[in-house]
Each structure stands twice: as C-alpha cells, then as structure tokens.
C-alpha cells in the first residue's frame, strides 16, 4: 500500500513541481482575491445603488457557484464567447473570484463588528470617509478578519486541487498521472495528501497562534 523509497524518489520531483504550481495558484488567487474581497465588501456596504447591486451580484455568484463550476465555466465556457484562457490563468481567475466573494463577507462582517462609536468619533474629529476607513475602521476590521482570512487561505490552497479538472499540472494532476502510468493510484495520491498536509497543518497552527494574539487586543 505505501509507496516504496524508490517510487518516492522517482515521483518526488514531479509531485514537488505540482505542489509548486498549487502554491503559485494559491498565492496569486489570494493576492488578487483578498483586495478584490475588500472592494466587494465596500461595494456591498456602499450607499450607491448601482455599486451595491454590482457588488452583490459578484459576491452571490462567487459564493453561490461551486469553485469547480466557476473553474469549468471560465476554462471551457468562456472560449465559446471568444475568450480563451490558459489553464493557469483560468484557475487564478476562478479562485480569485471565489476568494473575493467569500473574503468580502468576512471583511464586511468584521467592519460591521466595529463599535458604531468608532465611526462617529472619526466623523466628529472631521475625518472624511476615506480617512475614516483608512485610519480607523480598516485597521480594526482587518485585525478582526485576519484569523478567518488565513483560515480561508488554507481552504483555497486545498481548493487548487480542483484545477486538475482543467488540466492544470498541479499536485493532484501529477499524482493522478503517476497513478495512470504505474497503476499505483493509492500510493501516489497518498504521497500527494502528505504534501498537502505538510503545508496545511503548520498553516493551521499559525492561524490559531494569530487568533490568540489578535484576541489580546480586543478591548476598547
């Protein structure tokens, strides 16, 4: 059942390059997705009707559709309307959208959790809206949101495995490929699982550490 040492050393270069692609997709999706989520959160909270409707639409589609469907839609669906994207780009777009949609809700809830008096105080000392957001609300809101954002980042890392359906050579694709070449599916997927865990578990420990630290300041 377990892969032998020879097998492992033969597979590892492939698996590691797959892991590297998984991580690249994760990092890019988060770098694009979280700022996008912030914009969507502000959009949803905006007073302007049109802004609000557009933001709500993007959030609801991004959250309502499974990440797998978004991926397939962008990779296989868009070409029929004339837009063809590589699997890497399609993966980043789909997961960034998914990230944006979910993190916008995390960020919105965090912003709304800030006591109302904070905004009032910011207004009363004459700060304009942007400054109130930048200096008073966001620093506090993001501190509240940070643990949830990090936890979500781990989910997105695991979600990159869905990209094997659009032929992106990430970790699961590589393991699957090894399996189909050697008929050693179980050992290959097991090795891939261990690699996922080697990132996810330390990351989860980091999250709980950050959560404790963020909590230590939670008093007015």
């Amino acid at each position: 059942m377990l892969p032998s040492y020879e097998e492992l050393s033969a597979w590892l270069p492939d698996l590691l390059s797959g892991l590297s692609i998984s991580l690249q997709v994760t990092v890019l999706s988060l770098l694009i997705g979280i700022p996008f989520g912030l914009l969507l959160a502000l959009g949803v909270l905006a007073k302007n009707r049109l802004t609000k409707v557009i933001a709500l639409f993007l959030v609801e589609v991004g959250r309502g559709a499974p990440a797998l469907v978004l991926l397939q839609f962008i990779y296989f669906g868009l070409p029929t309307s004339g837009l063809t994207l590589g699997s890497f780009t399609a993966a980043v777009i789909a997961l960034a959208w998914n990230t944006g949609a979910y993190t916008s809700e995390i960020i919105r809830a965090s912003l709304q959790s800030i006591p109302h008096g904070q905004r009032e105080a910011a207004v009363a000392i004459g700060l304009n809206r942007l400054d109130a957001l930048r200096y008073v609300l966001l620093p506090q809101g993001l501190r509240v949101a940070l643990p949830a954002l990090l936890a979500f980042s781990i989910l997105i890392f695991q979600g990159t495995s869905l990209c094997f359906t659009i032929a992106l050579p990430e970790l699961v694709s590589r393991a699957y490929e090894i399996g189909s070449n050697t008929f050693r599916y179980f050992p290959a997927l097991l090795a891939a699982g261990v690699l996922y865990a080697s990132i996810s578990i330390p990351a989860a420990l980091l999250v709980s550490h950050v959560e404790k630290r963020a909590g230590s300041y939670a008093q007015r």
């Binding site: 006591p115 008096g117 904070q118 009032e120 105080a121 910011a122 009363a124 200096y135 008073v136 620093p139 506090q140 501190r143 300041y217 008093q219 007015r220």
Partner: peptide, 12 residues
C-alpha cells in the same frame, strides 16, 4: 469638538 459618553478612543 465632541466628547462621547463611551469615550470612543481609537484602540489600535
């Protein structure tokens, strides 16, 4: 200038 019942200082 305004002073509030609950102070509303910026905690961060």
């Amino acid at each position: 200038g305004m002073v509030f019942q609950s102070f509303n200082l910026f905690p961060h």
